[in-house]
Design a protein around this nucleic acid. Sequence first.
RNA 1: GGCCCUAUCGUCUAACGGUUAGGACAUCAGGUUUUCAUCCUGGAAAUCGGAGUUCGAUUCUCCGUAGGGUCACCA
Length: 441
Amino acid sequence: MAPSPTGNLHIGTARTALYNYIFAQKYGGTFIMRIEDTDKERSTSAFEEEIIEGLTWLGLKWDDFYRQSERGDIYKKYLETLIAEEKAYVSKEESRREPGTEIEVIRLKNAGKSITFEDEVRGEVTFDTTELGDFVIARSIDDALYHFTVVVDDHEMGVTHVIRGEDHISNTPRQILIQEAIGAVRPVYAHLPLLLAPDRSKLSKRHGAVALKDYQDAGYLPSALGNYLSLLGWNPGTDQELFSLEELTAEFDLGGVQKGGAIFDIEKLKWFNKEHLRGFDAAAFYEYAAPWLLPIVSEKSQFSEDRLQKLLPTIHERITHGSEIVENAEAGEYDFAFETPAVTAEMLAWKNDDSAKDALPRLRKVAEILSTLPEDGDFETLKAPIFAFAEQVGKGEVLWPLRVALTGKERSPDPFTVIHIIGTAESYKRVQHACDTILSA
RNA sequence: GGCCCUAUCGUCUAACGGUUAGGACAUCAGGUUUUCAUCCUGGAAAUCGGAGUUCGAUUCUCCGUAGGGUCACCA
């Protein structure tokens, strides 16, 4: 894998890295991380750090690590050889980067022949290299350019398979020309379909989140993101969609790679994340969710660790990814667990009721039942007597006003879950308060 | 514009000449102990167009059309 530290780690780059990693794993090969930082003006260590951090987060482990900026002597040696063999030459010309400055670039002699190579996903591809001309391979003898460094490194490092984005397909013939010049063996090429934005153009910043970091920060799980990314442009030929990294390694093959570009669909990613989250037990989910939730609810008047623990399962069931917890919390969706809700009389009326007054006797009865129940009863203990009453009088007629009395919300978890979270004493208070509200309405 | 690549439901995709064109996400409807969520069931939804080849084309060929990539002293 050969990312360039000249910008945020792109989600497409992450996918390419993933495919490379999986492929190398599957065939017992060596996964090489090679930082392509030959452009000194654009490369930064912060971006390099982001690449390393991001791919590590995704679960990728490389066997070898190189930086092209540390390999100048090797490139220089190859350049000198090519010049000595008259396969390349020094050309004195005006700098394009700095007009007015005279520099000596190195150009490869190009006979302009037709190059055909076998692409593992696309089959035979042919290019005419004539219009490339004698292209520049180095800014100077000490400053080799991308196409040259890549070919030299692939050769030196014994790279057998080049799996990269389709945007590189037209670079391939010129790299083959360089290979032939330095006497390198041609690796196997596989050009992956591009990741597209919803408008089918190349996925870029103007389409929103394209950095791996954006998804990390939004709380997507590396396993879910990797799973989704793996299926964007590849499929195992079965209906299975949920994969761990290990399973992917076992199933993957280049033959299952798609030719056409694939639109990155955030909705499907959310589904994958939810599915991966499903496997979390309470402790794991606590660790996942608490950092998102705590800053928002820890100052609420009735906040306690106990309530937080009991609330978490309902959140687990409802959210797709971490930042959604923040959205919901900020919208007040979890307030019922940590503070007394504001309730209005009209909300307390069930749809079959004429007014909230109809609900009054039912709420009083529930309050009475509540007063007999243990504060820390389990879900079934709390539910049984109240539900029995509800079945007698009418489920909606009892349960709706009860739920609203407890939460003050149009939508929330069911009343038994809420009672379980806040305890019977607090529940009793809230129901009594709802009764007072009805009376004073 | 030149060159290259691509083309199945809205989206990701399956179907290596013969299927009622399958699955998943999203969506819609109904159901499951009130609302939300979960879960279950069901529905709607696709082979870009035109010629060929063939007994038979989603599948093979050609031509269109559309989309994309690339044309650096970036990677």
